[in-house]
Simulated assay, not measured.
Amino acid sequence: MKKTLSFLIIAALILCTMIPVAAAEETVEGVVKDFSGNSITIAADGKILTYSIDSNTKILLNGMPSILSNAAYKGVKVQFKASGQKAAELNFSEIGDQHQGYMTMAVIYPREMITDTNTDLYYSPAISTASKTETGVEDESIYTVRDSKTIDLGSIDLVKDSLKVVLNGKELKVIYDEAVQFDKSADNDEVKISYDTESENELLLNFEKEISEKTEDIEKILKINYKKKMYKISVKELYNFILDENVHVELNGVETSVPKAMNRSTYAYYILNPEGRIIYINSFYQDLECVIDSINGNKISISVNISDRAPFKDTVELSPSVSINGGALSVNDLKVKDAIKLTIDPYDAYRVTSIVK
């Protein structure tokens, strides 16, 4: 009887010692499978685990406090602590830069902008191509007051003889040759053009005398109109990124393979880890040229035949707020065999947001 009692006491002591260890939250590493505003699903230790998330859950992105929508991506690693069915801490420590571009073995990031700048393009030819073409002219009246005798029109290409300067209701004579001197006998009726080469070649208007003693009053008495040349700048930057072996790939919001995403998508968003490896690809249809095969309610079947890709078929769903030709057409205007361009919201699986017919 004494032996039995001693055994029970020892067992009880051991159990008491073990309880705090079992209850303590330990850090585990896993891979994000899915998440929403109030839950996250993680693959860890060969299991699929789902935990709830609330305002007390500590969320870190590269060591800094964050929110789930900014830190979590499917397929990325996460170090987490859980208490029962609740996530106590989520630490996303391998999120690096974010990029976008066409789907290929390298990321091509295209940019296009309309500008009035007359400065040269500064891009490395080793990683990018850039072009600058003149698109026309534009009327303008914007200027910046540098001081009581100097006006800055910015880094523009001025259309010659288009500048009109009116001070206190009087039109001033414009001197286009910087070497020409002011006419001392004139009563403040001249303004001279020069370029500030130390400040991105900005176009300056220099007045012989002070425009006004108070610079804040200048805009009330000075009116300037001119024409400037406009340019279109197109840039394509090439980034050779390496796919991480655990990269998570989606096509129109649905998990897919790398080849399918590459062959079908026309655009994609990329997430990199700090080592420069792609860990998340969100590819989707952007201005995808296709032909309508059939229409069934808010679902349409399409055929895509691009010369440098294998042809494929797909079925997409129209968003309730889909825009067709900018809102000029409705769903009823879509017909079988119509050639269209469609764009899908990559964050709302297979929902078409825009169609151009």
Results as ranks from 00 to 15, higher is better:
7 F>R: 05
8 L>Y: 09
8 L>T: 03
14 I>G: 01
15 L>A: 08
17 T>H: 04
20 P>E: 07
20 P>H: 08
27 T>V: 07
27 T>D: 01
35 F>S: 08
38 N>H: 05
51 Y>G: 01
53 I>L: 09
56 N>W: 03
64 M>V: 11
70 N>C: 01
71 A>I: 02
72 A>V: 05
74 K>Y: 04
77 K>Y: 08
78 V>T: 03
80 F>W: 12
81 K>T: 01
82 A>I: 02
90 L>C: 10
91 N>E: 13
95 I>K: 07
98 Q>W: 01
107 V>F: 12
109 Y>R: 13
110 P>G: 09
113 M>P: 00
118 N>K: 14
118 N>D: 10
120 D>H: 10
121 L>V: 03
123 Y>I: 00
128 S>N: 05
129 T>M: 13
135 T>C: 00
137 V>S: 13
139 D>G: 07
146 R>K: 14
151 I>E: 08
152 D>Q: 00
153 L>H: 11
158 L>P: 02
159 V>K: 14
164 K>F: 10
167 L>H: 06
167 L>D: 03
170 K>F: 04
170 K>T: 11
170 K>P: 00
171 E>Y: 13
171 E>A: 15
172 L>V: 12
174 V>R: 03
177 D>V: 01
179 A>S: 10
180 V>K: 12
180 V>I: 09
183 D>R: 02
186 A>S: 12
188 N>Y: 15
192 K>F: 00
204 L>R: 13
205 L>D: 06
211 I>Q: 13
215 T>P: 04
216 E>G: 05
221 I>E: 14
222 L>V: 06
225 N>D: 15
235 V>L: 08
237 E>D: 08
238 L>M: 10
244 D>E: 07
246 N>G: 14
250 E>D: 11
253 G>H: 06
259 P>I: 09
265 S>P: 12
270 Y>H: 07
272 L>C: 02
276 G>D: 05
278 I>F: 02
279 I>G: 01
281 I>E: 14
286 Q>W: 10
286 Q>D: 12
293 D>H: 09
295 I>V: 12
295 I>C: 08
296 N>D: 15
301 S>E: 15
305 N>T: 07
311 P>F: 10
320 P>S: 08
325 N>R: 05
330 S>W: 10
334 L>A: 10
337 K>I: 04
339 A>L: 10
343 T>R: 03
345 D>Y: 06
347 Y>A: 09
349 A>Q: 09
353 T>H: 11
354 S>F: 13
